[in-house]
Write a protein that binds this DNA or RNA. Sequence first.
DNA 1: GTCTATACAGGGATAGAC
DNA 2: GTCTATCCCTGTATAGAC
Lengths: 208, 208
Amino acid sequence: MSEPQQSKKPCVDAVDRVLIAAEDLFATCGYDAVSISAIAERANVSKANIFHHFQSKRSLYISVLKAAANHSTMLLMGLEETQSGYADRLTMLANGHLTNYLNHPNKSKLLMREILEHTSDAEIRVLQDDFGRNFARVTSLIEKAQTDGEIRQDLDAAIVAVAILATNIFYIRTREQMQESSKISFADDSDLYSTQMMDLLLNGMLSR
Amino acid sequence: MSEPQQSKKPCVDAVDRVLIAAEDLFATCGYDAVSISAIAERANVSKANIFHHFQSKRSLYISVLKAAANHSTMLLMGLEETQSGYADRLTMLANGHLTNYLNHPNKSKLLMREILEHTSDAEIRVLQDDFGRNFARVTSLIEKAQTDGEIRQDLDAAIVAVAILATNIFYIRTREQMQESSKISFADDSDLYSTQMMDLLLNGMLSR
DNA sequence: GTCTATACAGGGATAGAC
DNA sequence: GTCTATCCCTGTATAGAC
C-alpha cells in the first residue's frame, strides 16, 4: 500500500529515532544523567522537537519503558502447553528468559532498574505488577510440578522461582565483570552457564 | 582524655552529619538525583561548608562509598578457620552476608548499585575489584569442599558461588515488593528464606 | 569551620517563525 | 513537524567576611 520510503539518511522517522536514542542513553546512563540535549543530538533532532512529541522528559522515559515492557512481557506464554516434563519446561523457561535479555540488553537494563528499585510513581508501578504476574506464573508452574510429584513437595514454590530468576538476573548484570576477571568459564558462554546452573538447582550441590 | 562533648543538638560534627545525610540520600535517590543543597539542608550545614570539606560532589560520593565498603568488606574473614563441615560454613556465610545487608540497607544499596553497574571511573573500579576478591574467596572455599568430597566435583565452583550470592542479592533487592504482593511466606522472614534457599541449593529441587 | 552572596553552566520547557 | 531563540530555574563550585 504505502510507497517505499524515499530513503533519507535516517530512514526512520524522528519519533522513532528519538525513542531509540533515548532507550540507549537511559539504559547506559540512567534517567537523571541523561539530558534532553544529549538525546536530541544523538537522534539528530532539536530539543524543541522532542518536546513537541513528548510532553516532558519523564513521559518520554515512560514511553521507552513501556515499549521495553511490551517487548519482553509475553515470553512465558505457550510454555504451559508444552508436552515435555516439568524439569525440561523449567529449563526452557530459564533459558528463554536469559537469552531474551542477552539479546536485548538495553531493554532489560531499563526494566531491571525499575523493577529492582522501589518507585512511588504510579506509571512505573504498573511495570512492577507485570513482573509480579510473571513471577506468579512461574510459581504456579512449579506448583503443578509439585502436584505431579516431579518436584519436592516440601519446598516453597516461590523459593524455587526466586532461585531461577535471581541467578539469571545476576548473571546478566555481572557478565561483563566476570569476563574481565577471567577464570570464570561460563562468563562468555551463556548456554554453559544455563546448563550448569539448572543442573545445580535441579540436583543440588551436595555429593551423595 | 577528651572532654565529653557539650551536647549541641547535632552532637556529631558537621563532616559526619554530611556523610550520614549523603549516604542516606544517595542510597535512596541515586547519585544524579541528589543535589548538594539537599544534602546541606538535611545535614544542617551550608552548601559552601560541604565544598570546604569535600573537593567536589563526586569526591563526597566516593567518600561515602568507601566508608560503606570498609564496613562490609571483612565479613568473610575468620570463616576459613571454622571447624564445622563445609555445608554449615556455606550456610553461615550466606546467612552472614544476608543479615549484614539487611542491617545496613543504605550501605548495601550503594555498593550493589556500583558493583552491578559497569563504571569506567577508576576510584569505583576499586570497589568492584573488592567484590571480585570476595567472590574468589567464596569460590576457593567451595573448591576445598570439593576436594574433601563434600560437594559434587562435577560442578564449577564459580557456579555455586554465583547461586549463593545471586539469590541473596535478589532477595535483598526485591524484599519490599514481595512483601506487598503477600502470599510469599518468606518475604518478611529472612531466616526462613535463608533456610529454605540453602536447602534447595544443597539438595536440589527434584524429587528422588 | 562556618556562613552569605554570587558566578556561571546546563537543565527542562516554551514561543513563534517556517 | 521541525527549527532557532529564549526563559527561568537549579546545579556545582568559588569568593570573601566572620
